[in-house]
Nucleic acid binder design. Sequence first.
DNA 1: CTAGACCTTGTCGCCGGTGTCAAGGCAACG
DNA 2: CGTTGCCTTGACACCGGCGACAAGGTCTAG
Lengths: 130, 130
Amino acid sequence: MRIGELAERAGTSTRTLRYYETQGLVRPERSANGYRVYDEAELRVVHEIRALLAVGFGLDDIRPFVACLRAGHSSGDVCPDSVAVLRRKLAEVDAYLDRLGAVRRQLHDQLTQAIAYREETCFRKRGLPR
Amino acid sequence: MRIGELAERAGTSTRTLRYYETQGLVRPERSANGYRVYDEAELRVVHEIRALLAVGFGLDDIRPFVACLRAGHSSGDVCPDSVAVLRRKLAEVDAYLDRLGAVRRQLHDQLTQAIAYREETCFRKRGLPR
DNA sequence: CTAGACCTTGTCGCCGGTGTCAAGGCAACG
DNA sequence: CGTTGCCTTGACACCGGCGACAAGGTCTAG
């Protein structure tokens, strides 16, 4: 399988596949004419990469998962390094959820007060009772 | 007040203040020698900018708040445009919270299963009963 | 007069994952 | 033989909010 076919089957672009290669995530053979040649297993790898990217991982974080697949495991998640990354990411997400919750509260308060102020001003302008 | 003093008082850098100026957020006068001269009100403006940036706003989102302050209001939140941005941002944060919650769940599941698999493998390897 | 602290504008770099274009090789079909 | 389509490497662009540096002007104290 050459790069164009892999790109299409994986739902991405050739540019992206070449980039993954520079990052050490995908390792094609080369045919005599210099074309990249991928075996079926690489399709799996690319799917794993895309799935993890979609969840918010960076390419660096993904490396252990790819290594795990390449080591013959049926899931990229089960190797120690992958588990470590999963733990770390889960902690990061939890922390971010906390921060975002705080932000949400602040925004909500700000909005509530701004609206209250505007309504009060409106009442005063019209000389209406509260 | 010149740029260095404002930067120090606002807890930021001169580079940053000049950048805000290019973005139309801060408007210094110029003294005869070409130096930027800020009045006290600008300190307030810069504080508002920094506070909103810290919450996750972009400079574009912040513009209405600055305009609101500059229009004489004691808070940047109370003008219609600001309220609109607050509403939009709150919605964005809510959406992001949802997505992040889903991601958290997925990570948690992945982690749980990976660990379960590792333990099972461990048991099998040692020929122990479950 | 000079050193030093401040100011000016202009430019490049970063980060991450891609899009996009350029210039050129290789293969297959007519 | 030429066209078409796929492949190659290389390089610029993007987005946002700055950091950092260069080359030069200005003001003040000694």
